[in-house]
Structure formats: C-alpha cells, structure tokens
Simulated assay, not measured.
Amino acid sequence: MTAFKQVIKNRRSIYALGNNSEYSIEEIVSSIRETQKDVPSAFNSQTTRLVILNGEANTKFWDLILEVQENVLDQATWDFMSPIMHGAKNGIGTVLFFEDRDAVAKMPTVGQRTEAYKQNNSANSQYGVWLALAEMNLGGSLQHFNIGYEQGFDKAIREMFNLPDSYELIAQMPFGSIEQAAGDKEYIDSDVQVQLIK
C-alpha cells in the first residue's frame, strides 16, 4: 500500500480527542496552509477560508455551540451529540471552514451551480485538511453546528472572532491526539460503489 493510500485509510472520524502531539500548533497550521495551496476549486476561485482555533479560542467556541445546541436539540439528539461537543474542547483545536460569499459571487456562474461549486470547494478543502491531520497522526471529525448564513445562525461566531460579514460557516473540524481509536467500519461492495463501463 502506498503512503497516500495509507493516509486515506487512516483518516477516520475520531471523537475522543486529546491535547497530546509531537507537533506544535504552529507546525499543524503550517501543514494545513501548505495543503490548502493545492486544494482544487471551481475556476480556481479559492473561495474557502479557514480559521483555526486553539486554546482559549477553541474553548470559547465550543462553549457557545453547547449553549446554543442545548436549547435547540431534542433530548435524544442532545444525549448523542453533547459528548462530541464536550470532546472537541479536549482537543488541540478546531478548523472552521467558511466560504467567502464575496469571492463566491465573483465565480462565473449563477444560481444552483454557484451553490454546488461553493460546496465542492469547501468539501475539497475539508478532505485536504483531514488528510493533512491524519498524516500527522491526529484525529478529527467533521461537524455542522450553527450553520445557516441566511438565518443568522453563524453570526455570533463571526462576531466572537471579529470575522468578515461575508464569511459563511460551512463546517467545523475539531482535531487532536487520538485518545480512542475509531470503531470498525462497514463497507458496501466495491463493485456497487465504483462501477466500470466499457
């Protein structure tokens, strides 16, 4: 197996995060920056913006998420999700994935295509970051709390960190040392997942 395929295999959703790593936060940020340079985007539009939270900023962010979500989630969902949110506070940090709506508006496309390209840009970025973290033996998971630009759900986050009004929150990736390995993963048949037609 190539190193590339091994990194892909190692990338799993990890919820039990710690703050133990041989890498400093500066080294992690540097790796993420290098990865992002070559992440593809529609029309090379480069609309995705990453904000990496560490230390007190990370704690403040997840305290806000916990406060909001406790008031909106039903009890069963809260019981399932709150350990993930609390666990995120134990990690090294969180990557916030934003799309800069001003940059998105400059793409040479309209309507549903713009939305699709925006989401593709962000997804490419998310996967690139996840692989970069996995290469450093760090775990993470992809979360979608308090998203909703039109509804104002992410406004408090922009205000908390003094971010531009044009930033639309798409996802969050808490990351840290892997304190508990991911469980077994079920795979669908590869012939169903990937089909060859000649």
Rank of each mutant, 00 (worst) to 15 (best):
M160D: 04
Q180K: 15
F175I: 12
A132S: 15
Y149K: 01
I170F: 08
L133H: 09
E186S: 13
M160W: 07
E168L: 09
G152T: 01
D154L: 02
A156F: 00
S122C: 15
E179H: 03
N120Q: 15
N121C: 14
Q172S: 13
D189P: 03
A182N: 12
S141F: 13
A181I: 00
A182R: 01
Q143C: 06
S122G: 05
A182P: 02
K185C: 06
M173F: 01
G128M: 05
Y149N: 13
Q126H: 01
I157S: 07
S141D: 02
M136R: 07
G148Q: 04
Q119N: 13
F153N: 13
N124T: 00
D154W: 05
I157E: 05
S166Q: 09
I170H: 07
G152Y: 05
E150F: 01
F145G: 00
N124W: 08
I157F: 04
L169G: 10
F175Q: 06
E135G: 14
I147K: 00
E159T: 11
M173L: 15
I178V: 14
A182M: 07
D184R: 09
S122Y: 00
P164F: 03
A132I: 04
L133Q: 08
S177A: 07
Q172G: 08
L131D: 04
A132T: 14
Q151L: 11
